[in-house]
Amino acid sequence: MIAPTSQLEELQSRLNDASAEEILRWAGERFGAGVAFASSFGAEDVVLIDLIAKVAPAIPIFVLDTGRLHQETYDVMERSRERYGIEFETYSPQTEEIQNLLRNRGPNSFYRSIDDRKLCCEIRKVEPLRRALSGRQAWITGLRRAQAVTRATLPKVEIDATHGGIFKLNPLADWSEEQVWAYIRANDVPYNALHDRGFPSIGCAPCTRAIAPGEDVRAGRWWWEAAEHKECGLHVKR
Results as ranks from 00 to 15, higher is better:
Q7W: 12
Q7V: 14
E9D: 13
S13I: 06
S13G: 15
D17I: 08
A20K: 00
E22N: 07
I23G: 06
R25P: 00
G28R: 02
G32H: 10
V35C: 10
E44Q: 12
E44N: 12
V47S: 04
L48F: 13
L48Q: 09
D50H: 14
L51Q: 11
A53C: 05
A53H: 09
K54P: 02
I59P: 05
I61S: 01
V63T: 10
D65T: 09
D75M: 02
M77K: 13
R79P: 04
E82C: 08
R83P: 04
Y84S: 00
E87Q: 15
F88G: 01
E89M: 12
T90D: 02
Y91F: 15
P93D: 06
T95F: 11
I98W: 03
G106M: 07
G106C: 07
N108V: 04
R112Y: 11
S113Q: 06
I114E: 12
I114V: 14
D115Q: 14
C120N: 01
E122F: 14
I123R: 02
K125N: 05
E127D: 10
E127V: 13
E127K: 15
G135C: 01
G135T: 06
G135D: 04
R136F: 01
Q137S: 14
T141L: 04
G142M: 02
L143G: 00
R145A: 05
R145L: 00
A148S: 15
A148Y: 00
A148Q: 05
T153D: 15
L154K: 04
P155Q: 00
P155T: 01
D160P: 03
G164H: 09
G164Y: 10
I166F: 03
P171D: 04
L172G: 10
L172Y: 07
A173M: 07
D174T: 09
W175M: 06
V180D: 01
A182C: 08
A182M: 04
Y183V: 05
Y183R: 09
Y183D: 00
A186I: 07
A186W: 02
D188V: 06
D188L: 01
V189A: 01
N192D: 00
N192H: 11
A193F: 03
R197P: 08
P200Y: 05
S201Y: 06
S201R: 08
I202K: 04
G203L: 05
G203R: 00
C204E: 14
P206F: 02
C207E: 01
A210S: 15
G214A: 07
E215C: 10
V217W: 07
R218K: 12
R218V: 08
A219I: 02
G220E: 00
W223C: 09
E225P: 13
A227L: 08
A227I: 10
A227Y: 09
E228M: 08
K237N: 11
R238Q: 14
